[in-house]
């Protein structure tokens, strides 16, 4: 009985991934690439990925940008608002290394792994929409499949 329930959950979660994105201080280049995923050429919704931009109903959080000091506590708040199961994907070079902002005299505190756990990161400045799409599609089954059975 439990297995059937889990199977249903697996099926539903594989076709209904809700995404929320947060820009913690980027140059807007990666935001535009995330936006391009919604456009008809890439059409993120045919894979069952919906962008809601509300952390309370999100499964995947896309973190964009090198972290500015104002975002340090607020990013953690957003992450805590997302219900389990959840995953965070770092989009672009900025959350990984700070990219061009990782130099003297800039008010950024990368990497973003210091503040929230990151499940996958997509390098690139900016990454291509296909790379973002592939990252979400490949991280979602790992995190969401058999989530209840994996719990201790």
């Amino acid at each position: 009985m439990r297995n059937i329930l889990q199977e249903i959950k697996n099926f539903v979660r594989s076709r209904s991934i809700h995404v929320s994105y947060v820009d913690v201080g980027s140059c807007n280049g990666c935001d535009i690439e995330v936006l391009a995923c919604l456009a008809p050429r890439y059409d993120i919704e045919q894979y069952g990925i919906y962008v809601h931009n509300n952390p309370r109903e999100a499964d995947v959080l896309l973190v964009i940008g090198s972290v500015t000091p104002q975002w340090v506590d607020k990013l953690r708040e957003i992450w805590d608002k997302i219900p389990e199961p959840k995953a965070a994907v770092a989009i672009g070079n900025c959350p990984i290394s700070g990219c061009v902002y990782a130099r003297r005299g800039t008010l950024t505190t990368p990497p973003v792994e210091n503040y929230i756990p990151i499940a996958a990161s997509v390098p690139g400045c900016p990454p291509r929409p296909t790379e973002i799409l592939n990252a979400i599609l490949s991280v979602a089954p790992i995190i969401f499949k058999d989530y209840e059975e994996k719990q201790p």
Binding site: I96, V100, P123
Partner: peptide, 8 residues
């Protein structure tokens, strides 16, 4: 090349 830093 370090992918987290390279801007291609």
């Amino acid at each position: 090349i370090y992918p987290g830093h390279c801007i291609r």
